[in-house]
């Protein structure tokens, strides 16, 4: 008896746990990387900045699918054995973190210098100015970009199916081996990602509209 689109969809959603796990572990790499390297790129000059930029560009400008394979196959060669889950979370997370670090840096650079000068005039230390004045504004302004990066991360998790993790994409291929119904299977796969990513996209749009109208924040409801 052929399975319905809905049955197939439910079968694919069995991989949702892995998709979500990779995404969350990935965020544990992405968020610290984006903050540390974004701020470092903002604060440093000369050789130090070149080093910071090199690390960011390595993770950001490489083709993520190749990075994943390189780390999956190469780490054991140099004696480091990590689970496929850890390697995937690290590579996808740092790739996303590389993108987000540019948003952090751009957000900090976009602030008028008067903000820092006003903080200094009040006698605040550089660190206090960064944490209390600059970062809160930059992170709020850039939050729609972070949401977009999160969506990119969720979508990039489809890659882990290539290193044997049973995510939604892997489930689709498994089902395809027992069921010749490519239209239903791959439509269901697209729909499965859509129901995960679209709400995030809508939340990002809501956030963007809220930030665009600053009056709505200061006056509350």
């Amino acid at each position: 008896m052929p399975a319905s689109l809905f049955d197939i969809w439910l079968g694919i959603l069995q991989g949702l746990g892995t998709t979500v796990t990779v995404t969350l572990y990935g965020l544990m790499f992405a968020v610290p990387f984006a903050l540390v390297f974004g701020i470092a790129q903002f604060l440093t000059h000369g050789v130090a900045r070149l080093l910071v930029t090199s690390v960011i560009e390595f993770w950001r400008s490489s083709a993520v699918i190749i990075l994943l394979f390189v780390f999956y196959y190469a780490l054991p060669v140099v004696g480091i054995t990590l689970s496929a889950m850890t390697v995937s979370a690290m590579v996808l997370g740092l790739n996303a973190g590389g993108y987000a670090s540019q948003a952090v840096r751009a957000g900090l650079q976009a602030l008028p210098s008067g903000q820092r000068e006003a903080g200094a005039a009040l006698g605040l230390s550089r660190a206090a100015i960064l944490v209390l004045i600059e970062l809160p504004q930059a992170l709020v302004a850039m939050s729609p970009t972070f949401v977009n990066t999160l969506i990119q991360l969720v979508k990039a998790t489809a890659l882990v199916s290539l290193v044997t993790l049973t995510d939604m994409t892997f489930r689709a291929k498994e089902i395809a081996q027992v069921e010749y119904n490519p239209v239903a299977i791959y439509t269901a796969l697209l729909l499965a990602f859509f129901v995960v990513c679209y709400p995030i996209a809508l939340a990002g749009r809501w956030l963007e509209a809220r930030i665009a109208a600053p009056g709505s924040r200061s006056h509350g409801i």
Binding site: K155, A156, T169, P182, Y186, L190, F194, V196, C197, A201
Partner: peptide, 22 residues
């Protein structure tokens, strides 16, 4: 446009690769 942006490129490649011959 929203749908495309909410789905991975890998899924689209599989979709076209397996659905078109069908």
């Amino acid at each position: 446009i929203d749908f495309i942006r909410s789905t991975p490129v890998l899924a689209w490649l599989y979709f076209l690769y397996f659905v078109l011959p069908f």
